[in-house]
Design a protein around this nucleic acid. Structure first.
Lengths: 133, 133
DNA sequence: CGTTACGTTTACGTTAACGTCATGTGTGCT
DNA sequence: AGCACACATGACGTTAACGTAAACGTAACG
């Protein structure tokens, strides 16, 4: 049975990060590993959070932004005003992400065009080289 | 007729960047403004490049990555090997961007789910508050 | 019992991408 | 001529997100 608690090394291997990074995230209150003596033990919750952190980073969100968003996934027993604030924040991020996706789609198509153009140029160059021989 | 050459200030106003940023991009060889005496004059080409730079940044690419990609849009008269190298680089970036888009789509859907869940919680809390009154 | 492996804290170093400040120069207006 | 003003060039400062090194604890292994 796969242990639900991971040591720092197992965590690093599993998610391809360094120990320094995990300690840094803990210091920034993004993760809250438990302790066995001095050792850190990363729970399922920490693992889920780390996945979200890494994903957020790939989308260009700062750690501070991510920290606030993480609350959304672990609401549990919040006050009403806090919950409303979190929802509002989420709305903004959602809009951000949708805009980013749309713009990304456009950029992808443009890049594809440029590449087919480049491919044509290459084909021409090869023809010319073939003639030289 | 809208002048095709922009001064640094016009450029800043048009694209919402600071002079420092434009000089920095020039130092990093991302832009190549001409000179009238000492003054910089940003050509159409520089403006197009700046748009691509800003877009690249929004997608989380580093300036160095962007610099290399910009070549793709200004191939003109490259050598064959250089052109091939550029195409290869573009393929990787394209794959990157597509993966990013797909992952982004998934994250968007997940976030939406969390938000409807949060909305339900909010509705419950409001019911309870209404009863208290 | 020494040492090897893994973990900890503390502190200083590093890189990217600019911001900020001091100082100098050319340009047009009055 | 005098002056403001936009722009130029260094040079140093700043922030985020870690890297790296020093100095120490502890558990297992031969």
């Amino acid at each position: 049975m796969t242990e639900t608690q991971l040591t720092i090394r197992e965590m690093c291997d599993a998610y391809d990060v360094t120990p320094r990074t995990l300690r840094f995230y803990e210091a920034k209150e993004l993760l809250f590993p438990e302790r066995r003596g001095q050792q850190r033990l990363f729970t399922k919750r920490d693992q889920a959070r780390l996945k979200l952190i890494l994903r957020g980073k790939r989308f260009g969100f700062s750690l501070e932004e991510i920290r606030q968003l993480l609350d959304l996934y672990y609401v549990g027993d919040q006050q009403r005003t806090q919950l409303e604030r979190t929802q509002e924040l989420a709305r903004k991020h959602l809009a951000d992400m949708q805009a980013q996706r749309d713009e990304l789609q456009i950029a992808i198509e443009e890049l594809k065009e440029q590449m087919t153009w480049g491919a044509k140029r290459l084909a021409e160059l090869e023809k010319i080289e073939a003639q030289k021989i």
